[in-house]
Design a protein around this nucleic acid. Sequence first.
RNA 1: GGCCCGCUAGCUCAACUGGCAGAGCAACGGACUCUUAAUCCGUAGGUUCUCGGUUCGACCCCGAGGCGGGUCACCA
Length: 510
Amino acid sequence: MQDREDALIGSRIAKLERLREKGIDPYPPRYRRSTDTASAIAEFEAWESKVSETDGEEVPAPQHSLAGRVVSMRVMGRAAFLDIRDGSGSVQAMFRQNVLGDQYELLRDLDLGDFIGVSGGMLRTRSGEVTIEAQQVTVLAKGMRPLPEKFHGLRDVEIRYRQRYLDLISDPEIMSAFTQRSKVINGIRRFLDDRGFLEVDTPILVPVAAGAHARPFDTHHNALDQRLYLRIATELYLKRLIVGGFDKVYELGRVFRNEGIDQDHNPEFSLLESYEAYADYNDVMDMVEAMISRVSQEVRGSMQIPYGEDIIDFTPPWKRVSFKEELHRRSGLDIDQHPDDASLVRAALERGVQIEAGARESRGRVLDKLLSAFVEPHLVQPTFILDYPEVMSPLAKAKPGMPGYVERFEAFAAGMEIANSYTELNDPAVQRERFEVQEHIRQAFQDEEVDRLDEDFLTALEYGMPPTGGLGIGIDRLVMLITGQSTIRDVLLFPQMRVRREERSDSDTE
RNA sequence: GGCCCGCUAGCUCAACUGGCAGAGCAACGGACUCUUAAUCCGUAGGUUCUCGGUUCGACCCCGAGGCGGGUCACCA
């Protein structure tokens, strides 16, 4: 409150009142601009080259009404230059007292950050900048708070995330990263639509949070008096649709996992899942390569993308290596030599993998840790890891001729997992057994992140699901790779932040 | 959650070993009709994140807390 007063007090309130006294509405309902600033400049430059060709013939310069935010002002007595920015770019506006007359006095009531409309003729100044000379100035929206400093911009990362609009105003590169994010998502949609996939929406509020290893957020529905969860995956609903007869479906939506926050985790994140009947994980691998390389080409104009110290090359085909063999090669550990859990834990400990004594360290978790420790850091260039142990993958179909393993791949790049895919398990009896194993592990190891049994899904499978290839892609991480951002916070417009204590309501505190 | 680092004017940053909290930009007043981070002269602006302690004296030292970042653990 105090802070708010301070920021508002001062000249801006006085200016606002002065405008009103002059009968000017500082927040008029609309303004008709003739075009945006980028188009106005392009049109003027086209006009210039036409004039030079026609050599002396009288062609009047274009007139325009342009609108935008005042981002800088250079006032020099009876003339002034203002930079006006809109979504397309910015243009310089020239104000001159002899042209504007009384309206020139408006300058005294303008601040950086205000939105104005300027109409007049386009010209090029002596110093060579395309400029609109104001014949009419309209206040469109008065800003009541000062913007971050124009030269250094906004460095305070906390403000950058809490007040992203200020970050967007001050940093064109951030705005560009978010524009690219939108293009990535749009490119994925077009890719899948072109291949005949149908985009669907499945429930976000679900009675069972199944389909992934993660702790869910829970909530309560009053009218039904029923506990509900926010979905942690879309997998089991999308497979119900395959059962229902759709051959190719996908959903690109938000999922929620009640877990830690760091450079590549946010509690809500965007997940693409797709399911294709009569396909297997080999087909899906081909599709992932094609999709990501195409999107990279579309958004960045290249399949080679600089990321940190590296250049990630998405050009297909990507390297394909088996889980078991790659782990063996990197760690010297052959997991098949350690069929019992105790022996595997010992072998992992011998190699320096940190494992808490007892709690939560099921075989699946130990295997995952081994992969993270020995293999993932080396997966800089796009790589598919194939054929995972069954205990890690309750929803994937067994690999023929390889007992204990399933047809699953994960794709990695820059050491990050970006995709996960199975030849989907469609035998309802086997699926039930797998779920029961998971339930057992969850209870035995007190591990809330282990997958849950979804009885309705099993019923669906019992009606028959065709052989199907499924896919999940973490969209935020993919956007990080394609836009070169090192933290997920810079590809999420509003990353999750802790509410400041004094702002919390009573219900927030435990 | 552990450890490390940060928090000073609206913004970007200074402030020696504990000794009067400063600068640039923004703001305000003035000069200036082709400027480009405009320039020049002047003015104002502070709960140094919060609370407590040590001290003649604390932005600085100590304790507790808040928020953020990094890192380790965990998850996609």
